[in-house]
Amino acid sequence: MNRFRSLLGGLLGWEFSLIILVGAALLIGGLLSPDFLTGSNISFLTANFSEVALMALAMTLLIIVGEIDLSVASILGLCSAVIGILFAAGVPMPLAILAAFVTGGLAGLFNGLLVTRLGLPSLAVTIGTLALYRGLAYVLLGDRAIAEFPAFYTNLGFGNVPGTLIPLPMALFAVLAILTIIVLHATPFGRSLYAIGANQIAARFAGLQVERVKLSLFVLSGLMAALASAVYTFRFASARADNASGFELSVIAAVLLGGVSIFGGRGSVVGTVAAVFLIGIINGALTILDVSNEILTIVTGLLLIGSVLVPNLLTHFRTYQQRRRIKGDSVIQ
């Protein structure tokens, strides 16, 4: 109980405010449209952001160690193309999916090697591979769309957990989110991520294997994109090179809005999960109100800016308060 309480104590604050906001967004949506708070609508709209949600989990860890992966949506597109082209060539679906995971893992490995071996900034590297991986997807599939997947797989994409309205991808997300929470907040690996993100020099001097940890997270990010690609491909029953184009913005918006510091060293999975839901629900509410796609994009953009701005302001405010509180101690050297 004590463990639970101290864990909870650390999470309250920004995360708690987000959860309140999720509730408020649901309520407002319900007031705006009677169709909004129905089980089937909620089910549909949560399924709608499952790919973003999955990729946001790995992105949370990456941003906590002070790196970023802008190429996730392109990896998703590439993996989707791999599934499509292999299936169209007659490869059994399980093997095609396996190939997508291999592709995603290799794409993440390539990002990670460029960052950790050559010391390049991940922002630049993954902007490059954002274009590269999407380009490869077009090389594989061109403008074609591969559809006609077996019903078993497409059902996995848009089906619900039997007897409930919980979409299967969301159930998968829930399991992985809990795993990520445990890894980040209760394992040696998770402890090391915060140390690396806050000061990688000191982390190295404490014997932490900074490069190896970062490399593993880039690979994880690629694997999560591959998983998201399977979900996306089956949910829409369509493998296309431009699948999930632009999703990286939503993923990063969710992570930053979730309170993860863009400078690394700070953040939690609970924050990311709450932010994923908040963004998804706002988008869903606007969709049900027939707000145009352009406006949706504008809202996502504003949330991204807000998500960097607000926590920043909060941090400033907190440091200011802290300074006032400990000024006496700290100025006496």
Binding site: I182, P188, R191, Y194, A195, A203, G265
Partner: peptide, 30 residues
């Protein structure tokens, strides 16, 4: 720069070099 992660707590810093020994199974032992 090298000795401490200034943003982390005293406890986290003191334990940083032996994280793997402070576990029960896979998880950290608080």
């Amino acid at each position: 720069q090298q000795g401490l992660v200034m943003d982390l707590s005293i406890e986290r810093n003191a334990n940083l070099a032996i994280l793997n020994r402070l576990t029960g199974g896979l998880l950290m032992n608080r």
